[in-house]
Nucleic acid binder design. Structure first.
Length: 720
DNA sequence: TATCCCCA
């Protein structure tokens, strides 16, 4: 079955070769002629599977046709059809089961046995002996192995974290105080900076407009003043770009990139093994799925500080897991900014957002327009009048936000008809969500005209544009296309001059960007109306939230909260629901079911006394030494070897190897630890006898200290 | 049962 994303609807190969066997002279044609693959997909197959070589791609496909699922735009079903029709692969081939099992879990996350079998039946995966191929079964649940590993590792890492009471505050040097004075930080923000500098791991939360980014920039600057190196990261390109702008604006000497870039993402994996900086700040952390957060944590140097900045009330990650929310629930060190700077003049929007979170209806306010219980027949005309009132040529000034792409596509056409009716049409793209007609063609197309408001829908490093940025179409120009080619000798990517072709000129945040004609459809769409996911991380003076019906219960509150808080001065809400139904929907959140990670953490684990300070902790990450001790260690461990003879670390090959190298089985000095830390997993070292003797305990922080700090924060309206 | 991210 063809999917709506298969937009190879027009072109067919000009020449149809007669037989596959005679095609070795033209391997690309062979790929193109596979069932369900056309021109465009064939190119991607060659690029993704063969690294540019069609011959190599064919070898990959012949070895295992299900390798095709690695190509963007090819799922299990399309690969399966090719495997069975073109390569005679039987229904119970191991490769088929492996790909099918993985496909199911890639779509659905973690499934129990019954759910998993139901999905297998749908894909006609019948042989029960092959039900675990490519996936892992753990206590009645099926997992992708890498997903299970990420979660187990996160669990281990979280058990080793200080919890709640361990929030610490750094003292600021004169230099640092001067920085904060110059930046104009208030007391709340100063405390946040001190917390960032003092805690190895810190969650940093606050709603839109509470100045999180400001604090982060200030903290990074202060870090740099004490000779730390610092780096900002974000999941999304646009968020990284915003952070970079903020750092530039405050004159902070630190880079900000996507996580993928920082970890050296290539093809399907990360190439950076250990990160080199001292302070890492991840923005929009609520967007991180388990695997990605773990990918960062496992690469952190041991003395690094990690700050996770986010708003747990915003939209959850697309992938599996909600590690940011889990960390907060688990009680990791946490600073919350309460005071809102941005919406101080527009308290109505703030109260609206609070109302959605707290299930309370705020008093009516001038800056919040509610249009509820709108009859379906009147939705369009109401929309039109709102655009006439709040829309206009100042595209930076307003934005319509929806939940689904279908609604976005529909109302983009209406908004365009009002705002830019007479612009010259420059190109068009298919509106797949508005339905498909015969022969799988889209029913509607959108015209992009001169003067239109547009949105970037995909990052391009070549063009320097990011998914989610909005802009204005300036016109057309003709110039040579710049293409990125991999130099076959050096292996580096290089910019080369390609064919001369028309380019679409777009003004994006004040910069003129020329998008080559053949890539416009990939990068540019109408931007009057966008989905909430694309709006995340941006704000506009006037926002219209256009959502005719109910939003699914488990997402509703996050959708309305995120969408409403995008507005700085004026907010319009449009819905067909009655007043009570709307408020019920808007305040409905997913039932508070603990994530699988939280369930793991809730299970009791044996406690072990730290060899250095004696504090019992569930996990001793550093060879019997707790996190706090290791982090405060400069010269070496103060452990008397005589006290250690009764310890019995867990046996195993890694442990044996480590003993052999070191000649003993006691916890290691930091210098020794350097030698074995890469080969001995912490799990190998962690099992210690509970009755073991312990060095004199000296807690790192008394209850009094933490109470004093808590009081300081409370006094400043900061919750932690 | 919808949403969507990442690179050389």
């Amino acid at each position: 079955m063809l999917t709506p994303t298969d937009n190879d609807y027009g072109t067919r190969p000009e020449k149809v070769p007669e037989r596959r066997g005679s095609l070795w002279s033209d391997p690309e044609a062979e790929i193109r002629n596979l069932p369900g693959i056309g021109h465009k997909l064939a190119k991607k197959v060659v690029e993704d599977l063969g690294d540019g070589s069609a011959q190599a791609a064919i070898v990959m496909v012949e070895r295992n046709p299900y390798n095709l699922t690695d190509v963007d735009g090819i799922g299990f079903k399309k690969a399966d059809r090719i495997a069975r029709e073109a390569y005679d692969i039987g229904p119970d081939d191991i490769r088929r089961h492996e790909a099918g099992n993985r496909f199911i879990l890639e779509m659905r996350g973690v499934l129990n046995e019954r759910e998993f079998f139901a999905e297998r039946v749908k894909l006609e995966l019948r042989d029960q002996n092959l039900k675990e191929h490519g996936v892992e079964l753990e206590e009645g649940h099926y997992w992708l192995p890498e997903e299970l590993d990420a979660e187990l590792q996160l669990e281990r890492w979280m058990r080793g974290l200080p919890r709640g009471e361990a929030l610490q505050l750094a003292d600021l040097s004169e230099d640092q105080t001067a920085v904060l004075d110059r930046m104009g930080a208030d007391d709340q923000q100063r405390l946040a900076v001190r917390a960032i500098l003092a805690n190895r791991v810190l969650c940093f939360t606050g709603g839109a407009g509470t100045g999180k980014t400001f604090c982060v920039a200030a903290a990074m600057d202060c870090g740099i003043r004490q000779r730390w190196s610092a780096r900002g990261m974000a999941f999304a390109g646009k968020a990284a770009d915003r952070m970079r702008e903020a750092l530039d604006a405050y004159g902070v000497m630190a880079e900000a990139t996507t996580i993928h870039k920082a970890l050296g993402f290539q093809k399907k994996s990360f190439t950076v093994d250990v990160l080199g900086e001292k302070l890492y700040v991840i923005d929009e952390a609520s967007m991180l799925p388990n695997w990605l957060l773990w990918a960062v944590i496992k690469r952190l140097p041991e003395d690094a500080h990690l700050v996770l900045v986010g708003d747990p009330n915003q939209l959850p990650p697309i992938g599996y897991g909600t590690p940011f929310v889990d960390l907060l629930k688990h009680g990791a060190p946490h600073v919350h900014l309460e005071k809102n700077y941005r919406q101080q003049d527009q308290q109505g929007i703030l109260h609206m957002a609070e109302g959605i979170l707290n299930r309370s209806r705020p008093a009516p306010a001038e800056c919040v327009e509610m249009h509820l219980y709108v009859a379906p027949a009147n939705l369009d005309s109401l929309f039109d009048s709102l655009i006439q009132k709040h829309g206009g040529p100042d595209y930076e000034g307003w934005q319509v936000i929806t939940y689904t792409n279908e609604v976005a596509e529909r109302y983009n056409l209406r908004a365009q008809a009002i705002v830019n009716p007479g612009g010259v049409a420059l190109f068009e793209y298919p509106l797949w969500k508005l339905g498909t007609g015969e022969r799988n063609r889209p029913l509607y197309h959108a015209e992009v005209r001169e003067g239109d408001k547009v949105i970037v829908v995909k990052n391009s490093t070549t063009l320097g544009i990011f998914n989610g940025q909005t802009g204005r179409v300036l016109g057309l120009t003709s110039k040579a296309k710049i293409v990125q080619r991999k130099n076959s000798v050096t292996g580096h990517w290089e910019e080369q001059i390609g064919d001369v072709m028309p380019h679409l000129l777009v003004d994006i945040t004040g910069r003129e960007v020329a998008v080559p004609e053949d890539e416009v459809e990939k990068f540019i769409q109408l931007g009057y109306v966008i989905t909430v996911h694309k709006a995340q991380g941006s704000d506009w003076p006037r926002v219209i939230v256009m959502q005719p019906g109910k939003v699914r219960d488990d997402t509703a509150r996050k959708f309305f909260y995120t969408a409403s808080t995008r507005a700085k001065n004026h907010l319009c809400i449009v819905s067909g629901l009655r007043v009570v139904a709307w408020w019920t929907n808007a305040a409905t959140d997913a039932p508070d079911v603990p994530s699988t990670l939280m369930k793991r953490l809730a299970k009791a684990k044996p406690m072990f006394p730290c060899l250095n300070c004696g504090t019992p902790v569930a996990h001793l990450p550093h060879d019997g030494i707790c996190w706090d001790c290791v982090s405060s260690m400069e010269g070496g461990l103060l452990v008397d070897p005589a006290d250690l003879k009764d310890y019995e670390p867990e046996p195993g090959p890694e442990f044996d190897a480590a003993i052999e190298r070191n000649g003993h089985a006691r916890p290691l000095l930091p210098s020794e630890w350097e030698d074995v830390k890469h080969s001995a997993t912490p799990a190998t070292w962690r099992t210690l006898r509970q009755s073991a003797p312990v060095a004199a305990a000296e807690p790192h922080q008394t209850g009094e200290d933490s109470e004093r700090i808590a009081a300081q924060f409370r006094a400043l309206d900061v919750v932690w």
